[in-house]
Design a binder for these strands. Structure first.
Lengths: 315, 315
DNA sequence: CCATGTAACGAACAAATGCTCATTACATAT
DNA sequence: ATATGTAATGAGCATTTGTTCGTTACATGG
């Protein structure tokens, strides 16, 4: 057994004893014949590696009420609202991950083979990471965004690939960059045979998972270098309120036609979808984007936080 | 909203912030406008109330190896082995609960209506308590042991009832005491119409969950006042190695014929069952009982602890 | 063989948590 | 209104946990 494996094993053991067995780290150390600090490190390592999964079972009535209100107002089938924790971004991300993973798990669990479209974004990535390993080789996972990044290497946002790894499902990548160099280039990418095959598969997906992004200073598209600051300013001036996998929408939820829109290669889906399309997003920066996406009727499910829910309902 | 509800709500919120959001209790206190101690109490309350569910995702290879060995040796379809934590009974119970609940959850999750037989015992009770609330009104849960206790009141071991409450399933109780006053009395109970109906239902169950008990000093049957110390001595002298819902078996796993055996009203099932029958037990006191039950081929699944697994495999 | 970088380790300290106890608020019965 | 029991509260302290830092072990390349 590799050194790495051995460490994970021991960490898992320490985590069992600590979190489930209610031992102190000192007791664990004694039992495993290691130092107190080492026990502490093992437990910390287990948490860091995602070996420890925590769920809060009791729904908070305020959050439940907000979720119900959102369901009614925007015709959602699924809605989960997590408590807001000041503006601690780290905490928010973790909470959305836990709640999001719970929702996704319900679907993934099905034995019946499914096609699952997966978008991009940090929130979605965190959710996939939070998923337990469930073996579902019968499912097919489709990446809705181009897996080819302009600099070639980094595919760190290929959330779909991660999801496929987690579940052992088949993985279908979209052979394109997220944003093509020109409208012509975009048309080329999108007319490739493989693109069309994947796109066709995605059109019949049983489930679609997408992140919702803001458009503005420090927005994901800008941070990840897909658009320039100038382009962002132009988009905002043109009324951009948010985006999903690169598709920009305005405040009413309608697609925003712009120089950019003809260069985005990522997959599209109809408004008021008949199959579940679940969006994940939270945090003050995204209030406007979430509201816009909901107004546009792009989602049938949403996982968000308390403050965002309130803001959206108030708007 | 009731005072109680409000407290649970706030406890859940604190638990989210503490366990998921990674806040300190001080931060939680500030945010909720309460004292540091109060935040601590809320978190503790949430844990105590079972609002917080912890799972360790990574299988420990030693435990996995033991589980595989048990599967092979005793023809089990399912086996889960949790790490042993000295002889901390409390920790053992919690670990078995978590691992057991995980196994049970897999089955309960099914949408297809199921009939589930549920036995008795502290371990099984703890497992049911650990189950998340999943609404499954289509399932039917059958209590394998008499729900009528001799002193009338206490039905604290009616694990099946709890399970039915947790899942919102229909509940079928066995109208009988666990141990009848005499063989004649027993025959009477077992020939009642309702008993026969329930028994018939149980015979076609899709899943059976039972605890495994020891027979000896401080064994469950004695502790709960179902048998006297003298009777236990006699049973042990006659070769009793363990019991499941009152059915005593010897070291080879064969039913032990005794004055008691004709008075036990609880349901029976065939050895080498074709549908899943899962046993739950751990701890030094039960090593002999577990080995006996496995030898008898009564189970197709087992959840136990490392030390027990080793002991059984060594024997 | 040595040099060099990296991981493991434990001591010591700082921070966070849990517990006990005395006090206070509050409800219910008299 | 007053007594009386119960739950809520915070102060103070003990324990537990987390982090930093210097040292030691160990592997790898020269």
């Amino acid at each position: 057994m590799s050194r790495q494996q051995e460490k994970r094993d021991q960490a898992a053991r320490a985590a069992w004893m600590y979190y489930v067995g209610n031992n102190t780290q000192h007791e664990i150390a004694d039992r495993l014949g290691i130092s107190r600090q080492m026990a502490q490190r093992l437990v910390a390592y287990a948490v860091e590696q995602g070996l420890v999964r925590v769920r809060i079972e009791h729904p908070i009535s305020d959050c439940l009420a907000l979720a119900d209100a959102l369901k009614t107002r925007f015709g959602l089938a699924i809605c989960s609202v997590v408590p807001t924790d000041g503006n601690n971004a780290e905490a928010l991300r973790r909470m959305l991950s836990v709640a999001g993973a719970e929702v996704v798990e319900q679907f993934i669990h099905a034995e019946k083979p499914m096609v699952i479209n997966v978008g991009s974004g940090r929130t979605l990535k965190a959710i996939i990471d939070e998923l337990p390993e469930i073996d579902r080789p019968q499912h097919r996972i489709v990446s809705m965004v181009g897996a080819i990044s302009s600099d070639g290497a980094s595919n760190r946002y290929d959330v779909a690939l991660r999801a496929a790894e987690k579940t052992g499902s088949k993985y279908f990548m979209l052979p394109a960059p997220l944003i093509a160099d020109s409208a012509e280039d975009c048309r080329q990418w999108c007319s490739h045979r493989v693109y069309r095959v994947v796109s066709e598969l995605a059109a019949h997906a049983d489930l679609t998972l997408v992140g919702v992004g803001s458009v503005g200073p420090a927005c994901p598209l800008l941070e990840d270098g897909f658009v320039s600051e100038e382009e962002v300013s132009q988009l905002v001036a043109a009324g951009a309120a948010g985006e999903m996998i690169g598709h920009i929408i305005d405040g009413t939820g309608r697609p925003l036609v712009s120089p950019l829109s003809s260069r985005v290669t990522s997959l599209q889906w109809p408004s008021s979808p008949t199959r579940p399309v679940i969006g994940f997003a939270g945090g003050a920066a995204k209030h406007k984007a979430i509201a816009a996406v909901l107004r546009g009727g792009w989602l049938s499910g949403l996982v968000t936080d308390e403050a965002s829910a309130r803001a959206v309902l108030a708007g």
